[in-house]
């Protein structure tokens, strides 16, 4: 098992957002958590990423208890709902961000960026400003950026929201393929069951 979430709860004041949630994600597979909006899906991902502290519960990643580990030391990648590309960096530098943090040398950074942008089908926009990208291209850059540092687990927060149906379906297929090609362990949250079926290997319904 790569990611083990055990009895995680999260309260916001009096309000219970998550209650005793448990889930296991096997190495190299994608698990989808499907639930309607407002049911705490994004909260779950933010807890796994370390952006929120759970009220109770334990998170184990590759046999290491990371419940209290700061986000930047967890080795998790995350694709945000609205991409959150760094507006002051071009496509290449967005993808290179996590690699620079890990102090990789420039030649390796360039080749890894090239490899990932080719993988997501954006080899030719490397030096473009992110402001010039279409919605679909932005999603692909966000995915390449999150995959670049080879995280132990990739978290996908409604990654295909806001795209038209045709693009949505194409990207869902591509995403499934890319996650398999890179043998990535991924946790996807979505409200869309059909999307979950295309992208993931197993589905968990959140009550």
């Amino acid at each position: 098992m790569s990611l083990i979430i055990t009895d995680v709860s999260f309260n916001y004041g009096e309000r219970i957002i998550l209650h005793d949630f448990s889930l296991e994600v096997t190495t190299g597979t994608t698990t989808a958590v499907v639930a309607p909006s407002g049911s705490g899906k994004s909260t779950l991902l933010r807890i796994v990423a370390g952006l929120l502290k759970p009220t109770t519960g334990i998170i184990i990643l590759d046999e290491r208890n990371i419940t209290h580990t700061p986000t930047h030391q967890r080795s998790v990648g995350m694709v945000f709902q609205d991409n959150q590309l760094f507006p002051h960096l071009n496509v290449h530098d967005n993808v290179a961000f996590g690699l620079k943090v890990s102090k990789m040398n420039q030649r390796d950074i360039n080749s890894r960026c090239h490899e990932l942008l080719e993988l997501v089908g954006l080899g030719d926009v490397m030096r473009q400003s992110v402001a010039t990208l279409s919605g679909g291209e932005s999603k692909r850059v966000a995915l390449a950026r999150a995959l670049a540092p080879s995280p132990r687990v990739l978290l996908l927060d409604e990654p295909l929201t806001g795209l038209d149906q045709e693009l949505h379906d194409r990207l869902a297929q591509d995403l499934h393929q890319i996650l398999h090609l890179t043998n990535t362990t991924a946790l996807l949250v979505t409200h869309d069951l059909s999307e979950a079926k295309v992208i993931s290997d197993s589905i968990h319904h959140l009550q």
């Binding site: 952006l51 967890r74 998790v76 995350m78 760094f86 943090v101 950026r145 540092p149 995280p151």
Partner: peptide, 29 residues
């Protein structure tokens, strides 16, 4: 500056100091 941009930098391994250097200061440059 969107909070999630800073969250995103954290998930990419950036420490608070690195976030200041690479996100907050350049965006306010």
């Amino acid at each position: 500056v969107d909070d999630r941009l800073i969250d995103c930098a954290q998930t990419l391994g950036a420490s608070p100091l690195h976030i200041w250097k690479s996100i907050i200061l350049p965006l306010g440059k």
